[in-house]
Amino acid sequence: YYTGHDISPEFSINFWKEQKKIYSGNKTHQNSVDLAFATLFLNRSNMSGIINGGPIGGYSQNGTSQIYSRFNKKTLINKITTISSRKKQIRLTRKNALDMIPMIKKEISPSSCFIFFDPPYFGQGQNLYYSSFNKKGHELLSKEILSLHEYRWITTYDKTKQITDMYQDNNKNFEYHLRYSANNKKRGSAPELLFASPTLKIDSYDKVNLLSI
């Protein structure tokens, strides 16, 4: 794990700005530990974990939560250590999902995998992420996902009519509510959509109640 910085509840918004600069800057830090740390830090200290979402608690840090509230060193170290112990089982490709799905069909048997698709939001995707889809991109993705007839998969989305229409022929479609904190001034229960493959047995768990749609 990264030891180049002393992270504590007292770190300032200036430290956050330094990490944002590393992440958004030139190629000096490309493929470096500094860039890896900046990416991890921004994911943990930004609203909803979105790199482009702005710091938890705002730039003035006068919100009910501050930028360090989701940066638990012990938990993060344990997660990184676990991932490292399984590195021989992990393959990173950086491929677009539209390229990845044909590769999955060719190389991976349906019985040996479970797939979670996490596409950018339809409604606010272009405002929240550096890389997003337009409507046509979401339509193409839905067709590829729905073509995985024998595979076990799940995908989640923000609730929009356009996305519901794209998956209307799927027979395991659900709505659920999730605590939403992309805007720290107003927290609430935002409806989300979950689509699952016909081959997957799925049920509600803990505080997430799935309602069939």
Rank of each mutant, 00 (worst) to 15 (best):
residue 1 Y to W: 03
residue 2 Y to F: 08
residue 2 Y to S: 00
residue 4 G to Q: 09
residue 4 G to M: 03
residue 6 D to S: 04
residue 12 S to Y: 06
residue 14 N to C: 08
residue 20 K to N: 13
residue 21 K to N: 12
residue 27 K to Q: 09
residue 32 S to Y: 09
residue 36 A to G: 09
residue 42 L to Q: 06
residue 42 L to V: 01
residue 43 N to L: 03
residue 45 S to Q: 04
residue 49 G to I: 01
residue 51 I to F: 02
residue 53 G to L: 00
residue 53 G to R: 03
residue 60 S to I: 00
residue 64 T to R: 06
residue 65 S to W: 12
residue 65 S to A: 10
residue 67 I to R: 02
residue 73 K to A: 06
residue 77 I to V: 12
residue 77 I to K: 15
residue 78 N to M: 08
residue 80 I to K: 02
residue 91 R to I: 07
residue 93 T to W: 09
residue 97 A to Y: 11
residue 97 A to K: 07
residue 98 L to C: 09
residue 100 M to H: 06
residue 100 M to C: 04
residue 109 S to P: 02
residue 111 S to C: 11
residue 111 S to G: 12
residue 113 C to S: 13
residue 114 F to Q: 09
residue 118 D to M: 00
residue 119 P to Y: 08
residue 121 Y to I: 01
residue 123 G to P: 03
residue 123 G to T: 07
residue 124 Q to G: 03
residue 124 Q to M: 12
residue 129 Y to V: 02
residue 132 S to H: 14
residue 133 F to M: 04
residue 135 K to W: 07
residue 142 S to Q: 13
residue 144 E to I: 00
residue 146 L to M: 15
residue 148 L to P: 01
residue 149 H to W: 01
residue 149 H to A: 12
residue 151 Y to T: 07
residue 151 Y to R: 05
residue 154 I to H: 11
residue 156 T to A: 12
residue 156 T to I: 01
residue 164 T to W: 05
residue 165 D to P: 00
residue 166 M to Q: 12
residue 170 N to K: 00
residue 173 N to V: 07
residue 174 F to R: 02
residue 178 L to M: 05
residue 180 Y to H: 06
residue 186 K to D: 04
residue 188 G to W: 15
residue 190 A to Q: 12
residue 190 A to C: 04
residue 195 F to T: 08
residue 195 F to Y: 15
residue 201 K to R: 11
residue 206 D to K: 15
residue 210 L to P: 05
residue 211 L to T: 11
residue 212 S to R: 13
